[in-house]
Amino acid sequence: MANNKVKQLWAEGKTVVNAWLAIPSGFSAEVVAQCGFDSVTVDMQHGVQDYLSMVQCFQAMHGHPVTPMVRVPWNEPGVIGKVLDGGAYGVICPMVNTPQEARNLVSYAKYPPKGVRSNGPIRSGMYGSAGEYQKTANDEIVLLPMMETKTAVENMEAILDVEGIDGVYIGPSDLGFSYGLVPKLDRDEPEILKIYEKIVKECGKRGLNPGIHCSGAEGAVRAINMGFKLVTLSNEVGLMQVYARQQVAQTRKESGGKA
Rank of each mutant, 00 (worst) to 15 (best):
F37L: 11
M69Q: 09
Y51P: 00
V40Y: 03
L84P: 02
I212W: 01
A130T: 13
K7Q: 05
V42H: 01
D38G: 14
D43T: 13
D186H: 01
D188Y: 04
V200W: 03
M126T: 14
Q241F: 10
P68G: 05
V182Y: 00
A244Q: 14
Q246D: 11
V96C: 04
I192R: 05
V231T: 05
E101V: 06
T251K: 10
F37R: 08
M44P: 00
Q34H: 15
K229H: 10
A11G: 08
E140Q: 15
R187Q: 06
F27S: 11
E163F: 09
E148R: 05
W10K: 11
M126P: 00
W74H: 07
N119M: 11
K184H: 06
E197C: 10
L175E: 01
L105K: 06
P183M: 08
Q247G: 00
I159L: 14
N75I: 01
G171S: 08
N235Y: 04
A152F: 08
V48Y: 05
V116F: 00
Q45Y: 00
H213R: 06
V6K: 03
G26Q: 09
T251G: 00
S25Q: 08
D139P: 06
V162R: 09
D186Q: 02
S234D: 11
S234T: 11
E154C: 13
H64R: 15
A29Q: 11
D38I: 08
Q241G: 12
Q241V: 15
M61W: 03
Y111D: 03
A244E: 10
Q241S: 12
V242L: 14
I80D: 02
A217I: 15
P112C: 12
V66N: 05
G180M: 13
E132R: 15
K5E: 05
Q8K: 15
T136S: 09
M54W: 01
P77I: 10
E236F: 04
E12A: 15
G90P: 02
E218S: 13
G180V: 11
L143G: 01
V6M: 13
E191Q: 15
Q8W: 07
A137M: 08
P121Y: 02
K194M: 07
S124G: 12
R252K: 11
L84K: 01
L181D: 01
G219T: 08
L160T: 04
P94H: 02
V55A: 12
P94N: 02
M156C: 14
